[in-house]
Design a binder for these strands. Structure first.
Lengths: 339, 339
DNA sequence: ATGAAAGCGCTAACAC
DNA sequence: GTGTTAGCGCTTTCAT
């Protein structure tokens, strides 16, 4: 039998109300009883039942995190950031792996509602109108990370993708590159696809460089930002436009890894024959051979920032907050060579 | 105001007991009232409050997962497997990033107790006696993944590290290698450190090969299985024993990546000049240049298997279960060359 | 087949 | 300062 507040009360000879008071540090008891209660709690190994507490207080001290793939480097790092502040503020986090599925997402929203979470964070989720509606119907604080919704103005935390892509390409141009290819994720992706391409195009234009559509590659497939996709895009580039580009901007670390892998297979040396700059800068960027020069997103910080926002919102009882654009920067390593 | 079972009852004109019955499909009501209740639930968008349910049923349909680093490739993949079966069986999972800290672990155990989880999974946690004791005191089903406890026989799911290391080294020997170095994680690690070294030594001995202690490298530091450590160990090997080994067995993917990176920096080509076999085979193994031949651990499967065990235990009301040794295998890619 | 009522462990008035 | 009591939203006897 688990020990309850009642047991502590009986053992101490006070009422459960008093025990509750000292547990919650509410005051309204002598220093003497406080000590008695505290030591009883200690001796009995009593821990307040959070479920019972949640039922009456309507606060579960739990938040939900939805993400398409927990095992992705990006998501995992952000999750770590979230978990970190949650822990600090004594919150628990429930992970929901939506697996890129809208249906699954809907189910999770339902579950989170039943579980009475105090708020939800959506990481890299593709925000369809349905998903936004579901989240909205929770009537709970919601903060998006690395994504945003066009159907409802949920506050978000992300870098400016277009601007970041622009910076990355400018870096290449600064290094003397003129013929720059791009390996993108699905162009239909309005968050991480199209905007990065726009940044790429814009950078080229702003430097008086012409844009060759056939130098922009992507695959509209399942993991369009994945390793496999990167390798295939590079394959196409090497086949169709040999010697016609001196650098490539990859829209994700994995895409860059795929490109690297393909280049290696074809005997094209990085960065001697070809420069590559990646987007994300997850841990694999520095593990690559050669280490990837990359556009850095502060993943952990993004996660913790968003979690702070969410908990603040919850505390303030509001559903609104100002979105924050996180600054990005370029980490120079060895995959880009000056021409 | 949220709609409760009471609202549904009133709206339908039946008692809350009846509503509860149809929600739980317990039978004991006419088909007619069932339909009425169901449609009312639907119209009102009613969802049973899991917190209230948990309070009375003493089942929260929630499990806790403790791991030293959510953002690690290993853990993340295992977590995904866990989450997958949890979702299937309508369970939620709370992640606890212990950050390699014993204190943090203790705190989490307390939190999980308060939250009344139905069981806990510990992934790659270094099981000190204190941690085991804490977990044990929960009096709840516990299953370990990729680790085991010497202080208490918690059921676990893992591969046989010594045997797996043995296989990996045999693979190298089969390919004609005779001088084989090893880059290990902290030797003081009784789970993933020492056993893999033992497997390495055993394989050498069984093939009549001599064991050169100076060919075994590791660093007793924070992330002893990490990329940085791998690079440093390789550095030492290349410096101290140049040309004296034709292959290296790395005790983790990251260690192998570090070795690869260092080799590249020194102009030693993989696999032409040196072969490398890794342990783990997380997603980065295939992303490496060249792709790493590796000893594969079925991470996702390990996670899901353990979760199944845990939920079965919970359902059966037992704290015991048979541990399972997961079979491993070697994935041949391009980092090992036959001599 | 259905309802009344007693809790689950706790918090929060409200008394004294 | 401390106790009593009324719930929180649900499940579960026990009647009827």
């Amino acid at each position: 039998m688990k020990t309850t507040i009642k047991d502590v009360a009986r053992r101490t000879g006070v009422s459960i109300a008093t025990v509750s008071r000292v547990i919650n540090g509410l005051g309204g008891y002598s220093n003497d009883t406080r000590k008695k209660v505290l030591s009883a709690i200690d001796e009995m190994g009593f821990r307040p039942n959070a479920v019972a507490r949640g039922l009456v207080s309507k606060k579960t001290h739990t938040i939900g995190v939805m993400l398409p793939d927990v095992s992705g480097m990006l998501a995992a790092e952000i999750l770590k950031g979230i978990e970190s502040v949650a822990k600090e503020q004594r919150y628990s986090v429930i992970v929901c792996n939506t697996n890129y599925s809208g249906d699954r997402s809907q189910e999770y929203v339902r579950t989170l509602k039943e579980k009475q979470v105090d708020g939800v964070l959506a990481v890299s989720e593709y925000m369809t109108p349905e998903k936004s509606k579901a989240l909205l119907s929770l009537n709970l604080p919601v903060v998006l990370i690395s994504t945003l919704s066009y159907s409802y103005p949920f506050p978000y935390v992300k870098v400016d993708d277009k601007q970041a892509a622009y910076s990355a390409v400018c870096h290449l141009i600064d290094k003397g590159h003129r013929r720059i290819a791009m390996i993108s994720g699905d162009r239909a992706d309005l968050i991480a696809g199209a905007p990065r391409i726009e940044g790429y195009v814009q950078a080229l234009r702003d430097h008086g460089l012409s844009v060759d559509e056939s130098l922009i590659r992507y695959r509209a497939e399942f993991e369009s930002f994945g390793f496999h996709s990167g390798a295939l895009c590079m394959e196409g580039l090497l086949r169709d436009k040999p010697g016609q580009f001196s650098a490539v901007f990859a829209a994700s670390d994995e895409l860059a890894m795929g490109a690297l892998s393909c280049a290696y297979r074809h005997g094209v040396r990085i960065p001697d024959d070809l420069s590559i700059i990646a987007y994300d800068d997850t841990r694999i960027a520095e593990m690559a051979t050669p280490p990837l020069t990359a556009l850095h997103q502060p993943l952990f910080a993004m996660g913790s920032r968003a979690a702070e926002m969410l908990l603040d919102m919850s505390a303030a009882g509001t559903l609104e907050a100002d979105s924050v654009i996180i600054p990005h920067k370029i980490i120079e390593r060895e995959s880009v060579r000056a021409l």
